[in-house]
Design a protein around this nucleic acid. Structure first.
Length: 890
DNA sequence: GCGGACTGCTTACCT
DNA sequence: ACAGGTAAGCAGTCCGCG
């Protein structure tokens, strides 16, 4: 279990006192030392405040909650007053459990309670025993001797039975259990009244919630309840977040290597604190031989020289004790970790003076909330669905460039040799980008974190660091507890529901996925693209999919088969996932998506609705995939398989229906169909049919003036009525392709955008020939610039170079050359290389010269890149460049 | 010893 | 630590070839 917050802090502080080693402070009188210990403010009364985080406090032995009060913009603490305790469940009755002496004598054991719960796998009430403990680590989390291990181990010894005792819900983090049991909603508003935590009612959002419920009239009661719950969570507005961005620089003797934060062997020489409140401070360590004076900084920036590193670090710590939210880019693994070890091991600071809570993989704060933006932007779902792949590599430079248009400052030499001006500017820019990443688009990122925090029922720190499967798991866990349902163990689900029945097309995959329709090659005018709004979530809703309902225990459901599989779906009881994912889907489609585009709404409300709809999009897009992911706690492959199978069924029927209506279907992929020149009538008929026969919303998503298809799947151009071009899957648009080739492709794209009718094609074709011929000639005549930069391929290293054991691809060969030169290469690094004539045929671009370039390789690439389009236009690459050859002779 | 057919690995992309 | 399907290029292997 993750080490967290105040709990550890106090334990550590106590240990510290017994150990006289820490020189500076150990000599001070005890009361003075005591005053250094952080005292959280725990008021008896607190105005409405945002619940931002929860943890277990070991010293007090209870849950502890951080509340952000938006007026003072400060964090306050609240400790549980309800006496809630950690626990797990077992199928053994108390009378049997009492026979287990190791359990009864366990220092963390408290007591038993017998109770009834609904077992969703058996679809019946069961009587189980709640084993209550004194602290969470007694239940589980230690390597040995936990209650959750003792019960099955000792019971089999006792009885000699093969069938061991069962234990449930023993791996849920205590503070999550606390949140679920008390129906708390992180990210929402609470106040403290006479020492009690009380949720705050918000009239304005209640009005809206009523309005939303109107939209769903006719849905079953249990569905309405979920809609109401989500709507209430999502309507509540966000506060301003008082925050500071922190970035530090360390004097490392080896410029290509990042210093080890655990050793923290070198001085911290610079730090920037950039606050949302206008604080702009650069702390610079005075060093011998560096000339003082900082120029060319904005006038509102304060530069403070520190004559010792300790003073500099204490200045940083002051801010960390002060700000409610602290932003870093990779602070978990570098900035905060480095500061912690540096302060402790090299500057002799006491742990109680350090505002950082060190975990194995994270660094949290004793006072505020640390958000590591590296972790947040690294999240694949966030990257793809919230920011539509605008950034590629997860570096501050790339994310900053893509989202806020700010780049890192390029350095001429090693950090330690810079002037104060250069160092300060460099460091300041990093902090600027970090802060800007949370302020752009009206605080979009902070609001997105808040919205997902609410849906996922987890602390902001956890939400921003963990993947979408954890978010989904947590809201499902919350629902189980609310409904007095036993949360099943992953192996029980798997044992009961089994693996999959279909065969995947791709080797190594678990089951068959979606259908891709063979495209009709050529140029097609007037193409309507229709798709199902959130196909998979709709299927999960409409077909009642979930681990409970697939292969349910009732005989009478066995006829309700999933197409192409032997599996059936329950007809008697609604699965939780179906309700929850269904409600989220409907809320997005029927309320948040339209509202996010509603120009009659005030800007701030519309922008909030836009945040909500993208938060929902991120979660919905993953909601089917998690069932097929082994790491998901409710992993249930037949559910994923059924979703895909029904998806194939739905799209196939729709295509059949379209053809029946006399519409040409020229392409389709998973949830979309491309229709050539359909009439309004035909579209309306198809939409109506889908609604009535499939219970699914099929809409026109986009319309192309014309589209260009080769025979390749997932590969086409669509020209919109305004002349802009949708390019899908084309090599000419892929990130790794040389700019030199991309430019020709862009020219062609632009020319195609000007074509309005079939008649205009001939002229365009002529010019496209010219574009290609031109590029070809420039290659052959070696005219591409002073340096081969534009010819570079850019390929990401999937793992460290040494890990390529099966084959050594070209980018890895190039990477190995760089490594020999002392470059530090990691997974995720982008390798830029060109193709050269001599073995090993590739060279890092920075080492290559024009004369070595293998021109014919590039002609080959030009060829294959354009073939994807030329096929459809009835053009031929060889003929295009062949003509040129003749012309050169004439 | 060499070239072509083949498989498998890898990356980038689509839904 | 969401899924499967597709395109493309290349590495490595096998096989035939007097």
């Amino acid at each position: 279990m993750m080490k967290r917050s105040l709990d550890d802090f106090f334990k550590v502080a106590e240990r510290e006192e017994k150990k006289p080693k820490e020189s500076l402070l150990a000599e001070k009188p005890p009361q003075e030392r005591k005053s250094l210990v952080f005292k959280p403010e725990t008021p008896q009364e607190l105005p409405p405040s945002y619940f931002v985080s929860a943890t277990y406090n070991g010293k007090k032995g209870c849950a502890s909650i951080k509340l952000y009060e938006p007026e003072s913009e400060k964090i306050y603490f609240w400790y549980d007053t309800t006496g809630h305790k950690p626990y797990c469940f077992t199928n053994l009755p108390a009378s049997e459990l009492e026979r287990i002496s190791r359990l009864m004598s366990h220092p963390g054991f408290d007591h038993f309670e017998s109770l009834e719960k609904y077992d969703p796998l058996l679809d019946q009430q069961v009587t189980i025993t709640k084993v209550v403990a004194k602290d969470p680590l007694a239940v589980g989390g230690r390597p040995s001797g936990c209650i959750r291990d003792i019960i099955p181990e000792e019971y089999s010894k006792l009885t000699g039975l093969d069938q061991p005792a069962k234990v449930w819900e023993a791996a849920i983090k205590y503070y999550q259990s606390y949140i679920y049991d008390n129906d708390l909603a992180p990210g929402m508003i609470y106040k403290i009244e006479k020492g009690k935590l009380v949720p705050v009612w918000h009239e304005a959002s209640e009005d809206t919630v009523r309005k939303i419920l109107e939209l769903f009239r006719g849905e079953p009661e249990e569905f309405m309840q979920r809609v109401e719950m989500w709507a209430r969570l999502l309507e509540y507005p966000a506060p301003r977040f008082r925050r500071v961005a922190l970035d530090i620089e360390v004097a490392s003797p080896i410029p290509t290597r990042v210093p080890d934060p655990r050793e923290a062997a070198y001085q911290v020489i610079c730090a920037t604190l950039l606050g949302s409140d206008g604080k702009k401070k650069i702390l610079v360590l005075k060093r011998e031989g560096v000339k003082e004076g900082v120029e060319n900084l904005p006038s509102d920036v304060t530069v403070e020289y520190c004559d010792s590193e300790e003073k500099l670090i204490l200045k940083i710590f002051e801010a960390l004790w002060d700000y409610s939210f602290v932003l870093t880019f990779n602070g978990d693994d570098f900035d905060l970790r480095y500061l912690y070890h540096r302060a402790l091991n090299h500057l002799g600071l006491n742990r109680s003076q350090i505002p950082i809570e060190l975990g194995r993989r994270v660094c949290l704060l004793k006072y505020g909330i640390h958000i590591d933006l590296y972790k947040f932007f690294f999240n694949r779902s966030i990257q793809i669905y919230a920011f539509s792949q605008k950034y590629r590599g997860i570096t501050l430079n790339e994310v900053g460039k893509a989202l806020v248009g700010l780049e890192k400052i390029e350095l001429d030499g090693p950090l330690s040799e810079l002037t104060y001006t250069e160092l300060a500017r460099y460091n300041f820019r990093d902090a600027e980008i970090t802060l800007a990443l949370t302020t752009f688009d009206d605080d979009l990122v902070m609001k997105l974190i808040l919205a997902i925090t609410r849906i996922a029922r987890m602390p902001m720190e956890d939400m921003s660091r963990q993947g979408v499967s954890r978010w989904i798991r947590n809201f499902l866990h919350h629902e189980h507890r609310r409904g007095n349902m036993l949360i099943p163990n992953a192996d029980d689900i798997l044992a009961l529901k089994g693996l999959t029945a279909t065969k995947a097309i791709i080797k190594g995959k678990k089951y068959k996925g979606a259908i891709v329709v063979e495209p009709v090659p050529g140029v097609h005018f007037n193409v309507a693209v229709m798709d199902f709004a959130s196909l998979y979530p709709s299927i999960i809703k409409v077909y009642n999919l979930g681990y409970q309902s697939i292969l349910c225990p009732h005989d009478e459901c066995k006829e309700n088969k999933v197409p192409e599989t032997p599996n059936w779906i329950c007809t008697k009881k609604r699965a939780l996932e179906s309700l929850l994912i269904g409600a989220l889907r409907d809320l997005r489609v029927k309320w948040y998506k339209p509202k996010s585009k509603d120009k009659t709404l005030p800007n701030d409300l519309r922008s909030w609705y836009n945040v909500i709809q993208s938060a929902l999009k991120v979660i919905l897009n993953a909601s089917y995939g998690v069932f097929g992911a082994e790491t998901f706690d409710l992993y249930c492959p037949p559910v994923a398989e059924a979703t895909a199978a029904i998806g194939r069924h739905v799209i196939t029927q729709t295509i059949n229906k379209a053809r029946e209506l006399g519409i040409d279907v020229i392409y389709g992929d998973t949830d979309s169909i491309f229709l050539r020149g359909p009439s309004q009538d035909q579209i309306k008929t198809l939409e109506g049919w889908s609604e009535k026969e499939l219970g699914m919303e099929l809409d026109v998503d986009k319309f192309y003036r014309y589209s260009v298809f080769s025979s390749r799947k997932k590969n086409y151009l669509g020209i919109f009525p305004d002349g802009s071009v949708d390019v899908k899957g084309m090599t000419g648009k892929k990130r790794h392709i040389p700019v030199f080739i991309k430019k020709a492709f862009d020219q062609m794209e632009e020319r195609l955008g000007e074509v309005k009718s079939p008649a205009e094609f001939e002229e365009a074709k002529k010019e496209i020939r010219k574009i290609i011929r031109d590029r070809y000639l420039r290659l052959k005549q070696r005219r591409w610039g002073d340096r081969p930069e534009e010819l570079a391929f850019h390929v990401v290293l999937g793992k460290i170079p040494e890990a390529y054991t099966k084959t050594v691809p070209q980018h890895v060969r190039a990477a190995l050359v760089l490594k020999d030169m002392g470059h530090d290469l990691k997974a995720g690094d982008l390798i830029s290389f060109v193709k050269v004539a001599k073995e090993p045929r590739v060279k890092p671009v920075q080492l290559a010269s024009n004369s070595e370039i293998d021109v014919d390789k590039y002609v080959g690439y030009l060829h294959s890149t354009f073939d994807q389009v030329l096929d459809a236009l009835g053009l031929d690459f060889d003929e295009i460049i062949g003509l040129t050859k003749l012309e050169r002779f004439m």
